[in-house]
Design a binder for these strands. Structure first.
Length: 425
RNA sequence: GGAGGGGUGGCAGAGCGGCCGAAUGCGGCGGUCUUGAAAACCGUUGACCCGCAAGGGUCCGUGGGUUCGAAUCCCACCCCCUCCGCCA
């Protein structure tokens, strides 16, 4: 959510941001009109309340002296009726204001490249070069099923399309990667590990920006009005919801959680294998930073995610999302993409975003600056990283001519010493 | 799920329907004292909104209601604690 004061003072800032995203701008004018109405109503109703407070006090004094207050009470009751009517209008107008404000996306940072779609996201870095194969590299589905690591048919039978079922070393590999990534972030990158709920209420979802706009993409438990988290970003960012953080910033948190996505808009896309699932696992990093340092923190966050990929010896590139491809709540975002030779494609395994105070304002997350003044923090998060596509890259990059897979040395200790996945394992 | 108790400022903890944004203690901050520190003493210390300002308004779990006036009374819901039941 944007700051209404800032919109009031500098509407063009928002308008330009919306234009850069390719979004409509009339909301800005609606907002200013409604804001104006709200302030007029507030001035009126608050002066009436001031009157009432004074009059009620007088009535109290008169009663103490034993005087009759019938006429005075009737007069104040009439004021009270007017207040009630105005209050109702204020509530309605504030509801309208919130409605508009909650639907306006964040304004892109000045450093974000301008563009219309993902086709215009510049590649800002690449690490490693794709491996040359002496044979035709296979896809992860063929490799994984051949090695007995996963079974999509059985998964579909019990859950439908878009679910994974890992077996044996395949299941162990999930656990190994989760453990490995959490260890690196906690031990070497300074994060505190948290283990949050996977079900959250609508307030939490609104706080991070999934609601109201992305309601269709989430699994909702109607009987309890709870949602399955689409990412650990939601519960971990909401760690400090409605709080004034009294600890020094920045704060780094990391969490492993399952993630659930309906993929409502992606029906029929990437239906085979691990590329796009309704349920997947992810290690997430979340930061709470002072506004002055949040863009430095974004670079460090990206480096923390890259470190995971580097330690696993994988080939990846980094894109800076252009204004037209930026997600709703983000002010700036880097995507990390792994090379998957079986797919002959780059797979997104991490988005590292700075939301500035957009989420903090929605979720009520504040801190005190050096003068003791409360201010909204800047929130950031990035995958560190998403599991299924990481597994795709590990299998497809590590495959040998005989169909076995050599694992990255960094996870061998987590695999109980297994260096290579073969049919017999 | 059932019965009972409770939700007040950073924490602990008072609070008669008007004098309560709220006693008191702790903590925090500033000061006196001290070579320095501690102790002691003095002062200070919530958030949000409207307003150029003066000032005004709102907030005592949440939402409604009663009243001229609600932290205080009524209703619903949420959360916490104790006991019982059930259960991984």
């Amino acid at each position: 959510m944007l700051d209404i004061k800032r919109i009031r003072e500098n509407p063009d800032w928002v308008r330009q941001g919306l234009v850069a995203r390719g979004a409509a701008t009339e909301a800005v004018d609606n907002l200013r009109r409604v804001d104006e109405t709200r302030r007029e109503l507030l001035t009126d109703v608050e002066s009436l309340k001031s009157q009432r407070n004074a009059a009620s006090k007088q009535i109290g004094d008169l009663k103490k002296k034993g005087q009759d207050t019938g006429a005075a009470q009737a007069a104040v009751r009439e004021v009270g009726d007017r207040i009630a009517a105005l209050d109702e209008r204020v509530r309605a107008v504030e509801g309208e204001l919130d409605q508009i404000l909650l639907m306006i996306p964040n304004v892109p940072h000045a450093s974000v490249p301008v563009g219309h779609s993902d086709a215009e996201n510049p590649i800002v870095a690449q690490h490693g070069t794709p491996r040359e194969f002496a044979f035709q590299p296979k896809g992860h589905v063929e490799l994984g099923e051949h090695l007995g690591l996963m079974d999509f048919k059985r998964a579909a039978r019990m859950s439908g399309a878009g679910f994974a079922l890992f077996i044996g070393a395949g299941a162990r590999l999930q656990r190994a990667l989760i453990q490995f990534m959490l260890d690196v972030h906690v031990r070497d990158h300074g994060y505190t590990e948290v283990w949050p709920p996977a079900l959250v209420n609508s307030a939490a979802m609104t706080g991070t920006g999934q609601l109201p706009k992305m309601a269709e993409d989430m699994y909702r438990l109607a009987a309890d009005e709870l949602y399955l988290i689409p990412t650990a970003e939601v519960p971990v960012t909401n760690f400090y919801r409605e709080d004034i953080i009294e600890r020094p910033l920045p704060i780094y948190l990391t969490a492993y959680t399952p993630c659930f996505r309906r993929e409502a808009g992606a029906a029929g896309k990437d239906t085979r294998g691990l590329i796009r699932l309704h349920q997947f696992d992810k290690v997430e990093m979340v930061k709470f930073a002072a506004p002055e340092t949040s863009y430095d923190e974004l670079e460090k966050l990206r480096a923390d995610a890259e470190d995971i990929l580097q330690r696993l010896g994988l080939v990846y590139r980094v894109k800076s999302l252009c204004t037209g491809d930026l997600s709703f709540a983000a002010a700036k975002c880097y995507d990390l993409e792994l090379w998957a030779p079986g797919q002959q494609a780059w797979l997104e395994v991490s988005s590292c975003s700075n939301f500035e105070d957009f989420q903090a304002r929605r979720a009520g997350i504040r801190y005190r600056d050096e003068n003791g003044k409360t201010r909204f923090v800047h929130t950031l998060n990035g995958s560190g990283v998403a599991l299924p596509r990481l597994v795709v890259a590990i299998l497809e990059n590590g495959q040998q001519a005989d169909g076995s897979v050599v694992l990255p040395p960094a996870i061998v200790p987590y695999m109980n010493g297994v260096e290579r996945l073969t049919v017999s394992v």
